[in-house]
Structures are given as structure tokens and as C-alpha cells.
Computed example of a mutant assay.
Amino acid sequence: MGRGKRAVSRRRVIGAAAAGLAGAGVPGAAGAAGGRAAERGGRYAGKTVLITGATSGIGRAAAVAFAAEGARVGFCGRRERLGRAVEEEIRAAGGEATYIRADVRRPDEVEDFVNRVVRTYGGLDVALNNAGIQKPFTDVHEVTVQEWDDVASTNIRGIFLALKYEIPHMRGRGGGVILVTGSSNQFATRPGLGSYTAAKNGVSGLVQAAALENAPHNIRVVALAPGMTDTPMLDVHRPDGLTDEQWAQEKARFAALGVDGFKRMARPEEMASAALALASPDFAFQTGASVLVDGGQLAGL
């Protein structure tokens, strides 16, 4: 890319790497997972998994992956067309999934979503509270109140609302696992990410408190903190006028700069695999933690 308006500054490049963005997914994510969907004896066979923000990105990849491992997946998102497409994709591969339109910023919709999943599948075993957004890089004093409220309402209040309505069902069932999608921004940040960082830091405290409160009820609460993930949510930082090919090349360049270990972005499927592992009995003694999965991103700061 040339200089000027179409150039991405190093500040923006490394900032994006620190953001741990999780937006829309990579085409073909259902490939290997879908091929396993018919194997209904997977490690989540008979389990009900609820996911927020699963019409794209990490959420979508997780819905596909949990279903491929035998789970009955209830998921939400605001984009109905994409939600129906994910539902159809999972069912076509032999899995079980139900899409319910819900906005995590609205308490009534979150409550209804959780209750409908429980009614549909007879309980709740695992929740992945994944819904989140980000805004273009903006210095703190230039962030509008509306932008701040939108990020906070989605990225931290939305998680609070999900926990509020999920926990009673899990306590009544005798236990469960709640995962929350955090971010590498819980550990380190860059200029222009104030609203996002504030919300994601709030995730740490919320997870710790919920974990302590619910450990006596056999409920684990853990945050999965992704590093830079290749999703269309990154498009909020896309300079005007770039072709898709140019944008892909630019993302590869700033991934090489920002992720000192693997020097590339994560794929949503890699974060979904981490979620499956963290929700499994393999991590039975893990609760209250934020688990960084960033390809060596923060190790190089």
C-alpha cells in the first residue's frame, strides 16, 4: 500500500493487533467440523450450549464446532439472515442448532433468548457469552457518548445480562460452564482503543466475581481472551479505496508486525477450539481466570 490516506499507520496496525477483535467468520469454517457433525457421540453429546453473537466470527465458528461435537446449540445475534444461514449450515451437516434473534443490549431480549434455549433443549450446560463490537480508533477525548455507550452496552453490560439470566438455570441444574469472550486488551492496549479496553477490562472483574460466587454451585466461569483474529470486524479500520486483495495483503502486513510469535492473525476456528477445550472437563479446576490465546502477541510487547 502507498502512503497518504490509504496507508495504515504503525499505531493503528499494532493497535489492531492488541484489540483481539472477533467479528465475522472465515468462509468454509464448517468444513472439517461439519464433516464430524454426524458423529453424534462427540464430547458434547447430549449437552446444551448457548452462544451469544454467533451469526459471525468466533461465535459462528464456536456454534459450528460445538454442534460438530454433538451439542445442541442455541445461539443469538442481531442479523437474522446470517443467523438463519448458520442454523441451516449446522443442520445440513447433521448437527442440531436453533437461531433466536436477540440484542444483548436489551434485557428483555436476553432473558427471552436464554429461557427459550432452555425450554427448547431442556436445560443449559455451557454458555459462551461472545457478543461484542468495536469502533474505529479514536482518542478518548474524541469518543462520542453514543459510541462509548454502544461499546459498553454490548461488550460488558451484555455479558452481565447474559450471566444474570444463565446462572439461575445452571444453579438449578447443579452446575455448568460459562465462558466469556474477552480480549488481549485486558492485558495491554494501544492508543485509540479506550472504550474497547475499558469494556474488556471490565470482563476480568465480572468473571472473577461470578466465578467466586458460583464455584459452590459447581459452575465455572472463565474468560477466553483472543489476540488478533482475522474477521470482517477489522473492516472498521479498512482504508477507503482498497480492494479485497489489497486489504488482505495489508492485514497480513500488520499481523506480521503485531503478532511477534506466529506473525499472523488467528482464525476464528482456532478460538472456537480453545473454547471447546476450556468448557471441557479437561479444565475442571479452572475458574475465575482470563486465558490469553494470542499467538505470542503480548510476549513481544
Results as ranks from 00 to 15, higher is better:
residue 146 Q to R: 12
residue 198 A to H: 10
residue 262 F to K: 13
residue 64 V to L: 15
residue 69 E to P: 03
residue 127 A to R: 08
residue 212 L to R: 15
residue 117 V to Q: 08
residue 113 F to Y: 14
residue 52 T to F: 11
residue 131 A to Q: 08
residue 204 S to W: 11
residue 220 R to S: 01
residue 87 E to M: 02
residue 194 G to L: 02
residue 87 E to A: 06
residue 180 V to R: 06
residue 52 T to M: 02
residue 266 A to Q: 15
residue 102 A to S: 14
residue 219 I to K: 08
residue 173 R to M: 13
residue 181 T to E: 08
residue 272 A to K: 07
residue 122 G to T: 02
residue 149 D to M: 07
residue 42 G to E: 12
residue 145 V to H: 07
residue 109 E to K: 09
residue 285 F to H: 11
residue 248 A to S: 15
residue 125 D to F: 03
residue 255 A to C: 12
residue 173 R to C: 00
residue 97 A to N: 06
residue 227 G to E: 11
residue 210 A to S: 13
residue 134 Q to C: 13
residue 23 G to T: 05
residue 297 Q to V: 00
residue 251 K to A: 00
residue 41 G to Y: 04
residue 17 A to L: 09
residue 116 R to F: 04
residue 246 Q to W: 08
residue 152 A to K: 11
residue 295 G to C: 06
residue 157 R to W: 10
residue 117 V to H: 05
residue 180 V to E: 08
residue 241 G to C: 07
residue 284 A to W: 07
residue 42 G to W: 05
residue 118 V to R: 02
residue 146 Q to C: 00
residue 124 L to Y: 01
residue 21 L to Y: 13
residue 232 P to M: 05
residue 81 R to G: 10
residue 16 A to K: 01
residue 257 L to M: 15
residue 78 R to Y: 02
residue 191 P to V: 10
residue 71 A to E: 08
